[in-house]
Design a protein around this nucleic acid. Structure first.
Length: 271
DNA sequence: CGCCAGGCCTGCACGC
DNA sequence: TGCGTGCAGGCCTGGC
């Protein structure tokens, strides 16, 4: 279930193998992801060279001279670098085959991911054009969060997960960042003081940085691994810990639903 | 068997 | 008008 740190780790894992490499072929085994994989991708990419790789929100952007391949891992997607002719397994839907003897393979059991093509300025793509700032960029700061939440009466957890306001905060890290900032997830966003906005900005950056560092430490296993990059071993303060004692005060962690997603918090520590 | 998890787009209805 | 908001639906599989 890739959140931003997993996507960032994936980017770092695949980038060295794709950079300046020429695509020799594209294999589409099952085109029915969130949107259909364009059928003409093989013709579009054959004999073209990867110029650059980057991440925007949870999208991986692989750019060529004539356009950009947009990848999203959805909830169950992973990418691996493998030798040519490695046999595909059940949920291996897409391969980018490189002239250097390797291939990049997308596995996505639940098929919520995406493989799209955009010619021209990728930032103008409908999926990317409306996105808010990156949480790890300097532009995402206390002033920004404070101003952006003044007219938002919705719960702060829903607001920080709104991609128009900011990107990259999924359910796990939203819960964890709010716990660390001692902010109750149901709090109306506009009620946050400037100081609490500053704290939340800090804890969001902190949980994401920590997760990326941990993911990075398992990067050596990226190739030939299952692509999960060791994120399973992370410890959480609140996520998935319903009824278990708060690691700060011992009170049982509560679970509620917000926007059809589970929220976890300590009613004692978070106000 | 049913329920749940995950990301996130889409559509609808409402009120200001 | 056009937002913000809340809700539901859709896309899937695997694990409990």
């Amino acid at each position: 279930m890739p959140e931003l740190p997993e996507v960032e780790t994936t980017l770092r894992g695949i980038a060295p193998h794709l950079q300046q490499q020429t695509v020799s072929d594209v294999v589409i085994r099952n085109a029915s992801l969130r949107w259909p994989i364009p059928k003409n991708l093989p013709q579009l990419l054959r004999n073209h060279t990867v110029r650059n790789l980057r991440r925007r929100a949870k999208y991986l952007l692989i750019s060529f001279d004539h356009g950009t391949l947009i990848l999203h891992l959805g909830m169950s997607g992973s990418l691996r670098i493998l030798p040519h002719h490695t046999l595909p397994e059940k949920h291996d839907h897409f391969d980018l085959i490189l002239a250097n003897g390797k291939l990049m393979r997308l596995r996505d059991p639940r098929r919520f991911g995406a493989v799209l093509w955009h010619a021209g300025d990728v930032n103008a793509h409908p999926l990317l054009a409306q996105l808010g700032p990156e949480p790890l960029n300097a532009e995402f700061d206390a002033d920004y969060l404070y101003q952006a939440t003044r007219n938002r009466s919705a719960a702060i957890k829903l607001v920080i997960m709104d991609n128009h306001l900011m990107v990259g905060v999924g359910n796990i890290y939203a819960n964890e960042a709010l716990f660390r900032a001692a902010i109750r997830p149901q709090l109306p966003a506009h009620k946050l003081s400037k100081a609490r906005c500053a704290l939340l900005v800090q804890t969001i950056k902190e949980v994401l940085h920590e997760a990326i560092t941990k993911g990075g430490s398992s990067l050596r296993d990226f190739i030939h691994s299952d692509g999960s990059s060791g994120f399973f071993q992370q410890h959480y303060f609140v996520y998935g810990r319903t009824g278990e004692p708060c690691k700060h005060c011992g009170a049982p962690i509560k679970q509620i639903k917000q926007g059809q997603r589970s929220s976890f918090y300590c009613a004692q520590c978070q106000q």
